[in-house]
């Protein structure tokens, strides 16, 4: 029972700290413009990196924007790590293995939870050959095997290979801190401990059974390996949002709120409203160089 409670707490903390970080980043003050082209939202110009500034008297013309292209580029980056693929292929193979492994493991976790609920509802999750098995249960069964096997294999390979690359690559080694080795090792240990716990049953029937106990808050016999696995995964879930592995939060802001923001300050716009608010703010801290102090902060124009 204590193990189940710990698992719940770690998930709550993962979601809570992630949301807190996202909120803190979102609440930071309006910043100066820092677009970097190509910007995907620029309809018809994104392919070559163009923008509305290519038009004379751009402010008099309707801006042609495409949310679809922005979404497409965002998905390419999220699902395939496009920039790494294009700019550093050797590392992409390893990094993508880890990230794809994580995606598969996330899907596997959902399937295991769904399978546990299904079994709690009295429907056994089994192979299709068994008489009386529903299509839903069969899907959960086979998809669970596929996502689990692929996920564990890719995540273990990716995290292990990234760790080894940092250890043996002379350049990366110079920039890697002990904490950053620890980050990769923690992920690797969590995944490998999962492999040792669930690996003896590649159909993941045990995992569904344990999950059913966790979901129903009923006691179950946990061997030392399972205890270790749950603790490692729990610690990982709590630690990730506290570390820079929470780049899944930061990446949204770097692209959508900085590089792709592309929002000019034109009269009557929402941006103008935000600019007016930002200009009204009086900072508590001030710079000390003589030329700054002498002139004082320049008065904002309203």
């Amino acid at each position: 029972m204590a193990l189940a409670v710990f698992a719940y707490i770690s998930m709550v903390l993962f979601i809570g700290i992630t949301a807190y970080k996202a909120r803190k980043l979102a609440q930071l003050p309006l910043h100066g413009r820092m677009e970097l082209y190509p910007v995907p939202g620029e309809k018809g110009r994104h392919e070559y990196g163009g923008s509305y500034y290519e038009e004379a008297e751009w402010w008099k013309k309707p801006r042609e924007l495409s949310k679809g292209t922005e979404l497409k580029e965002m998905l390419k980056e999220m699902l395939f790590i496009k920039k790494l693929f294009e700019n550093q292929r050797p590392l992409w193979w390893l990094s993508y293995a880890l990230h794809l492994g994580i995606y598969f493991l996330a899907a596997w976790s959902v399937l295991i939870i769904a399978g546990a609920f299904t079994e709690l509802a009295g429907l056994p999750v089994k192979a299709g050959a068994a008489a009386g098995t529903s299509l839903w249960a069969v899907l959960l069964y086979y998809l669970g095997i596929f996502t689990g096997v692929v996920g564990f294999a890719l995540a273990a390979f990716g995290s292990g290979a990234l760790f080894l690359r940092r250890v043996f690559d002379g350049t990366l080694k110079k920039y890697t801190t002990p904490q950053e080795y620890f980050n990769l090792l923690l992920v690797f240990a969590a995944v490998v401990s999962g492999l040792t716990v669930w690996g003896s049953d590649p159909t993941f029937g045990n995992a569904r059974s344990v999950m059913a106990h966790v979901l129903s808050l009923t006691s179950f016999a946990a061997g030392p390996l399972l205890v270790l696995h749950v603790i490692l995964v729990g610690v990982m879930f709590i630690y990730i949002p506290l570390s820079k592995m929470s780049h899944y939060v930061g990446k949204y802001f770097t692209f959508h709120k900085v590089l792709w923001e592309n929002e000019p300050n034109v009269a009557g716009s929402e941006m103008e409203h935000k600019v007016k608010q930002a200009l009204g703010y009086r900072p508590q801290n001030a710079w000390s160089a003589p030329h700054v102090k002498a002139a004082g902060a320049p008065a904002p124009e309203k």
């Binding site: 413009r33 009269a267 941006m271």
Partner: peptide
């Protein structure tokens, strides 16, 4: 662009 309100700029 964001150093002054758009009105009158």
């Amino acid at each position: 662009d964001r150093m002054a309100a758009a009105e009158g700029k």
